[in-house]
Design a binder for these strands. Structure first.
Lengths: 119, 119
DNA sequence: CGTATCTATGTCCGTAGAGGACATATCCGC
DNA sequence: GCGGATATGTCCTCTACGGACATAGATACG
């Protein structure tokens, strides 16, 4: 049974690194899979890389869980590519991302308090 | 072959939630397994709970990976309990925890920049 | 125009960790 | 001595991660 967005966003935490990175990318704008891969790698300075199996596997699960959905629109029709499949973050996906952001923010605070952040 | 502490702390990131929480507890002081469970639950306000299988499984892997080690000392000999097995964070474990703390701190900054932290 | 490389999506499969269920034994209060 | 709390541990299943591999359309270039 596919999970519905009925349950609280907090119940989905913590997110895995791939899922969080994908949500961060899609929170800014609709993107296709390959573009997400490139964006995540560039944004993280190469520290986070998504293999294609991780990327497309995660996207499928995220659609199943209603975190993202397929977008019919073609952003940038000027230089398009028929093969591309665009994804959009859902309202629920954004709520989950925000819940995770809050959790991480609190965690960062705690780690600072305990002198584990050394910079 | 068990992983040695030869490789860079960053190569072990990201840490799973259980492993990070255990390291946070042990960074403050030596503790036995059951005390770690209680501390994590209390510190997180019940949001993070470690089942015994998760806890002891994680501790075994963390020893294999030289993040923690068994401690022979008995802190609090006044009210001791023979069954307790105390664990201590290693220098390498602390380095890994600090690397993770830095990563999380940067992540929190990014999430704030992108207006995903709403509080 | 052929062909090599980049772009783009996807599956298959092995491995490892999370966690529920269960097992066992000791400690302590009453 | 009996029950609940303390304490450690295994077994088993499920799921996700990610390397290897497959396929094909787009683009550049001689």
């Amino acid at each position: 049974m596919p999970r519905s967005q009925m349950d609280a966003p907090e119940s989905r935490l913590p997110l895995s690194e791939p899922v969080l990175q994908i949500l961060i990318s899609l929170a800014a704008r609709d993107l296709h899979g390959y573009a997400i891969m490139r964006e995540v790698e560039e944004r993280s300075g190469g520290r986070v890389t998504l293999s294609t199996s991780t990327l497309y596997g995660a996207l499928q699960r995220m659609m199943r869980d209603s975190l993202v959905e397929r977008s019919a629109e073609r952003p940038d029709p000027a230089s398009d590519d028929q093969r591309r499949r665009y994804y959009r973050i859902t309202d629920f996906g954004r709520a989950v991302a925000e819940a995770e952001a809050g959790r991480i923010s609190e965690l960062a605070h705690l780690l600072r308090e305990r002198d584990l952040v050394t910079r």
